[in-house]
Design a protein around this nucleic acid. Structure first.
Length: 629
RNA sequence: GGUCCCGUAGCUCAAUUGGAUAGAGCAACUGCCUUCUAAGCAGUAGGUUACACGUUCGAACCGUGUCGGGAUCACCA
């Protein structure tokens, strides 16, 4: 079970928002006046009434049976009479231990009106104590283009950013770019050896893909070299001496690959030499490194732009990989760390089941976690945020547990505000994505596909044929992106998900375009009408309308829930439900040609409110919607 | 082996955090466009919530055990 992001909210199932809290208060007050029972509002949770009972909300009586030594029926009736007499509710019915009740028409009219104007944003921020957040997401390597895994990371990070911002927090985003190391050197070396100085522009290939191709080329050449080597004398000796597990020749050499790279490979030696040259600031190597990285960034920026995300701060591993040694020293001074005879530095976390962990190598160089200790401190010095959220796949859960624990033991002042949004990895229907087997889904390809699929559908329907080409393009790309983003964000962030490329381009059913369609339908109605934004008193209020308003009232709680669990999927699923309820309402009720003008105005008001919530919610998912489709 | 996560309809996912008869979408089948955009609506069919005990008014959810799947436990990043 994932720990709740804000632990103090864990047991608070009472809405913090006035309209919903009002309901709990009703019961709190009734319990006092009927039974002289005083309690906190948290003891009186109110939930939605199940659809089959035709009432608005439900209060569960079971817990009170023991406390009051009365039957559910008696409690329900006594409460019900009291509430009805006070004109607090319109009706109630008791089914088993459930007290189902409906609110008065006045309440719903008032709410539908109140939800109008800019009130939405104000209401959402009502319960926020503004804090400063820094959200780190994406963290790409610069040797190849972004893929599906990055997309999930990016969409989650961005959505969390939007959600916290809409709740009224001060939020900034950052990205740490893994711009150094063996991987980028492989791309560099391959380019140097085989490209004849070709540039992405000359090749007509998106620049990050261009660099990625040289990475692949390196791996191909390396494999050729390795395969040839395997039939040689040295390989034979190694196989005969070291194959203790009685593997086949193939599987033995598969495992031996890393060692070959480090010990025997010519290409491997060249790469390591290049890395050393980079580390001693060799001008030619640095300039090549800068050139190839700049190509990659140019490509990344285009992808970020298509995804509609941005970053406030960039950190580069090349500038941070030496950080953290001062922390190591202070950790030794405080006896949080200890030194082995060979000079390596360790921390013992076995008391909390986290093993012993190396902090500094025996040769004094840093490891992954050393850097992260250093960057954590650096970031706090620069940004002084209250909370730091790392959006990183759950395969690194252990790493972050260790990291956070170390920082706590070092008594770093920001240590309590560190969170790891550990999202699940993305699998394909065939299984894991493996770059070696070429099954990685490329980000740009995927984006291109969903947009072309959206365009195909739009052309078939012909609804937007009259618009200019630029407008059509904009609409189609919005719809395509809505499909892709929603497809990923609707599943719980913490769960591993299976990504079926075929289904990701679906435009019907539980999809982004379905929600966009609801919004577009409302916009179309609003274009054809005049909504006077007045508080009208309709002749009658349908249960469907009460239900829609009820959903709208619930929205701020959903946002808050997504924030506290760091999981936009709650919001995504809520928006689907709202859109679904609207689609049905739209089908069953005439809005422009309602029975009376009063009703038309009432319904227009409601539709406008729905469109505002849809827009706001989709915006919080990082999805922007067109006005027509 | 230690630690952590997961197991819900043929498939992909929900379930207002312990509530009522476990819901959607996809795939299959059937209806609805002279009516505010059919990327829609309505319907049929599909379930021993992996399994077994336990906790209580009530369990997919909490506890114990079993079985399956995954991640992680580097002087890699």
């Amino acid at each position: 079970m994932a720990k709740p992001f804000l632990a103090f909210l864990r047991f608070s199932f009472i809405s913090l928002y006035p309209e919903m809290k009002h309901l709990s208060n009703l019961f709190k007050e009734s319990f006092y006046s009927v039974y002289k029972y005083t309690g906190t509002v948290e003891e009186f949770p109110v939930t939605f009434c199940s659809g089959e009972f035709n009432e608005d909300y439900t209060f569960v009586l079971f817990p009170w049976v023991k406390k009051l030594s009365l039957s559910p029926l008696q409690i329900g009736n006594e409460l019900g009479e009291q509430l009805i007499t006070g004109n607090k509710i319109k009706s109630y019915s008791i089914v088993k231990g459930f007290f189902n009740f409906s609110l008065t028409d006045e309440f719903w009219i008032q709410q539908n009106y109140l939800f109008n104007h800019d009130a939405l944003e104000v209401r959402i921020k009502l319960n926020t104590e503004p804090k400063k957040y820094l959200i780190e997401y994406c963290s790409p390597n610069t040797n190849k283009p972004l893929h599906l895994g990055h997309i999930r990371n990016i969409l989650l990070g961005w959505s969390i950013y939007k959600i916290f911002k809409s709740l009224g927090h001060q939020v900034e985003t950052s990205q740490i770019v893994n711009d150094r190391g063996v991987a980028i050197c492989k791309s560099m070396l391959a380019w140097l050896k085989y490209s004849n100085g070709l540039t992405p522009e000359q090749a007509g290939i998106k620049a990050d893909h261009f660099v990625g191709e040289y990475y692949v080329l390196f791996e191909t050449k390396f494999k050729e070299e390795y395969d040839a080597w395997q039939s040689g004398e040295i390989a034979n000796q190694i196989f005969n001496q070291n194959n203790k597990e009685e593997d086949t020749r193939d599987s033995f050499f598969k495992k031996y690959k890393n060692e070959y790279f480090n010990k025997y490979s010519i290409l491997g030696k060249e790469v390591r030499d290049m890395l050393l040259a980079w580390e001693r600031n060799d001008p030619e190597t640095i300039s090549l490194w800068k050139k190839m990285n700049s190509w990659v960034y140019e490509g990344f920026d285009k992808t970020f732009q298509k995804l509609g995300v941005s970053f406030d701060h960039y950190y580069y591993e090349s500038q941070t990989y030496l950080l953290g040694k001062d922390i190591v020293q202070s950790g030794l001074d405080n006896k949080v760390f200890y030194k082995m005879e060979d000079g390596s530095v360790w921390i013992d976390l076995e008391d909390i089941h986290l093993d012993k962990k190396i902090i500094l190598r025996s040769d004094g160089t840093s490891v992954y976690i050393t850097q992260d200790l250093g960057t954590a401190r650096l970031r706090h010095q620069k940004h002084a945020a209250d909370q730091y959220i790392y959006v990183v796949a759950d395969e690194q859960e252990y790493h972050f547990k260790v990291l956070f624990e170390i920082l706590k033991r070092l008594k770093e002042p920001y240590a309590q505000g560190l969170f790891h949004l550990a999202y699940g990895m993305v699998d394909l229907p065939e299984g894991k994505m493996k770059s070696r087997e070429g099954t990685v889904v490329d980000a740009d390809d995927l984006i291109g596909e969903v947009i072309s699929e959206a365009t195909k559908t739009a052309v078939e329907r012909g609804e937007i044929a009259a618009l200019t080409e630029a407008e059509q393009l904009s609409i189609c790309s919005k719809i395509g992106m809505a499909a892709l983003k929603y497809f990923i964000l609707k599943v719980s962030a913490k769960k591993r998900m299976i990504f079926n490329p075929k289904e990701s381009v679906d435009m019907q059913g539980h999809t982004g375009p379905y929600i966009v369609n609801a919004y577009v339908r409302i916009k179309s109605i609003l274009r054809k009408s005049e909504c006077k934004n007045k508080q009208v008193v309709p002749e009658q209020i349908a249960i469907e309308e009460r239900n829609l308003i009820k959903q709208l009232l619930y929205y701020p709680d959903v946002l808050m829930d997504s924030a506290k669990t760091l999981d936009p999927s709650h919001l995504a699923n809520y928006l689907y439900t709202l859109a679904k309820d609207f689609h049905k309402y739209y089908h069953d009720f005439r809005i422009l040609k309602a029975e009376t003008e009063n009703l038309t105005q009432w319904r227009l008001l409601l539709c406008g409110n729905i469109s505002r919530v849809l827009f706001h919610g989709m915006d919080c998912l990082g999805i922007s919607m067109p006005e027509r489709m």
